[in-house]
């Protein structure tokens, strides 16, 4: 195996009193990879991110970050940056002063630390000299990302970085994360926004009640998954419905009426059966105008796996 690991966790456990936050968690994140972390509230995502950032130490198991075994002391190795539960900003300082203070803390000269560059990367150049007190949540998130970028991280840990972002801000953040990954930085991010994770991540880990429910590439997740609901918009809904009813492995979900859209057909199928339906529609001369999963494969897998895990307990 030649891949360089930025994070290697084996059997990590962490308890808070009687509460088991992490229970035997394994995690591998390679350099240059954006790795998503999903799970319901209380699944242990923030605890795991906190361990990566050196905010807490595991009670058991082994953790290597950027090749350095993490000891019992609170502190992450150099090259790790990020935030959990929102970025830490000082409201009495401007965006530029927040970054300059952070640069000075790391012994960097504020003039040469690249503050303007990182502000431009996250789209905050226009408000660089405004106090952080007046920043919206999205601007705070972007400034937090800029603060992390200032350290030129090789492992970037972000908790819900898309919270509060408008489309422009989201575009900036996605662009920055993708470029960082291209340059070899490993990114671990948690989010409840499945569309973000699907757009950004090559691998995901699903946590449920402190345990790993799934970890691996998104494609593998889709393959492991069960039937999905798909939304079809065709030129002849009635004929399409008849065709769907006659296709093996395809079931019509009769909730289109609930969606207040009589032209929409919702079917439940695995991918091969869906392919067959699409071919049938085309052969029958029915135009397929829209085909999309009702919920994303990741979200469906997330719901299925976490519910399964909960039921197993």
């Amino acid at each position: 195996m030649d891949t360089l690991l930025a994070v290697r966790a084996r059997g990590i456990t962490k308890c808070f009193g009687d509460v088991v936050a992490l229970d035997g968690v394994d995690l591998d994140v390679t350099q240059g990879q954006i790795h998503g972390l999903v799970g319901p509230n209380g699944a242990g995502k923030t605890t795991l991110l906190g361990l990566l950032l050196g905010l807490a130490v595991a009670d058991g198991g082994g953790l290597e970050i950027l090749g350095t075994p993490v000891g019992r002391a609170l502190a992450a190795p150099d090259g790790v940056a990020g935030f959990v539960d929102g970025p830490g900003l000082y409201p009495s300082l401007t965006a530029r002063q927040n970054l300059a203070a952070l640069a000075a803390l790391r012994g960097q000269d504020a003039r040469t630390a690249g503050i303007d560059d990182v502000l431009a990367q996250v789209g905050l150049t226009d408000v660089a000299d405004d106090r952080a007190r007046g920043f919206s949540l999205g601007m705070r998130q972007r400034l937090g990302l800029a603060a992390a970028l200032l350290t030129r991280p090789r492992l970037l840990v972000l908790d819900e970085p898309s919270n509060g972002l408008d489309p422009a801000g989201k575009k900036h953040v996605h662009g920055v994360l993708t470029r960082l990954a291209d340059e070899g930085t490993a990114v671990v991010l948690s989010s409840h926004r499945m569309d973000d994770l699907e757009a950004l991540c090559s691998e995901v880990t699903i946590l449920a009640t402190g345990r790993i429910a799934f970890s691996g590439p998104l494609g593998k997740l889709a393959a492991e998954n069960r039937e999905l609901d798909y939304r079809l918009l065709t030129s002849d809904t009635h004929a399409a419905r008849e065709l769907a009813l006659g296709t093996d492995g395809v079931r019509v979900v009769d909730d289109a009426g609930l969606r207040n859209d009589a032209d929409v057909l919702v079917v439940r199928a695995l991918v091969p059966a869906l392919d067959e339906l699409v071919v049938g529609l085309v052969r029958a001369g029915i135009a397929l105008r829209e085909l999309a999963p009702v919920v994303s494969p990741l979200e469906a897998a997330f719901l299925a796996l976490t519910q399964q895990q909960e039921a197993g307990r």
């Binding site: 030649d2 950027l66 090749g67 502190a75």
Partner: peptide
Amino acid sequence: TAANVVADNVVPTRRVPVSR
């Protein structure tokens, strides 16, 4: 191992001096 490969290039944790 992969981790060992990375370890060769890693600078250990540097704490910020109290003065800063």
